[in-house]
Every structure is written in structure tokens, then in C-alpha cells.
């Protein structure tokens, strides 16, 4: 596969390490009253869609940036990639 890195362009997916669902970026508030339940969901429950999926890839053999890659898990078509830091600081989900 080729990952369209937002800065570096198309890169061989072998340069990357895969993590999974981008919802891992939304770590629950540890001080919330239902923190434990929220963490249980966060740690153990993931969607596993057959279709469009936002997922985290780490450019380990590259610029060491974490990317959010939007990929169709059925066709492997990649619809876009963003720097995770920018998304997080921009407040987008």
C-alpha cells in the first residue's frame, strides 16, 4: 500500500507501523465520575467497520509522525491522511 503522507507525499506503507482506530486519540477525562466505565470503553471497545475507517499509522521509518489515515477496509482505497497532532490541536475528532 501507499500512504499519502500530508507532508511527504505517497510513501510505502512498509515505512509505517499500524495502530488502529483513531478513536484512541480521545482519551477519556480521568477525573469524570464515570471515568472507569469510560476507560473500559476506550480500552476495549472498537468499531471494526467494513468500509471507511479512520485509523492511526505511525511513520516509524520516516518523519516519526502519527497520521490519521482514512481508509476503506474493503477496497483498501485511501481517502486521505492528516497529521494527528494537527487534528488534535484543531479540535477535530
Amino acid at each position: 500500500m501507499l500512504i499519502p503522507h500530508p507532508l511527504l507525499g505517497l510513501r510505502d506503507s512498509q515505512e509505517f507501523t499500524y495502530l488502529g482506530d483513531a478513536s484512541l486519540m480521545n482519551r477519556p477525562d480521568p477525573s469524570a465520575p464515570d471515568a472507569e466505565a469510560a476507560f473500559c470503553d476506550y480500552v476495549f471497545l472498537r468499531n471494526n467497520p467494513a468500509g471507511v475507517h479512520r485509523e492511526l499509522w505511525f511513520h516509524e521509518q520516516g518523519d516519526r509522525s502519527w497520521l490519521i489515515v482514512t481508509r476503506n477496509t474493503v477496497t483498501h482505497e485511501i481517502l486521505g491522511a492528516e497529521l494527528a497532532t494537527d487534528v488534535k490541536l484543531g479540535g477535530a475528532q
Binding site: L24, M25, W66, A84, K88
Partner: peptide, 8 residues
């Protein structure tokens, strides 16, 4: 991961 994705 924590540096870039959780506490940037």
C-alpha cells in the same frame, strides 16, 4: 503516540 495524539 501520547506526545502527538493525546497531549500535543
Amino acid at each position: 503516540f501520547y506526545h502527538q495524539c493525546v497531549w500535543p
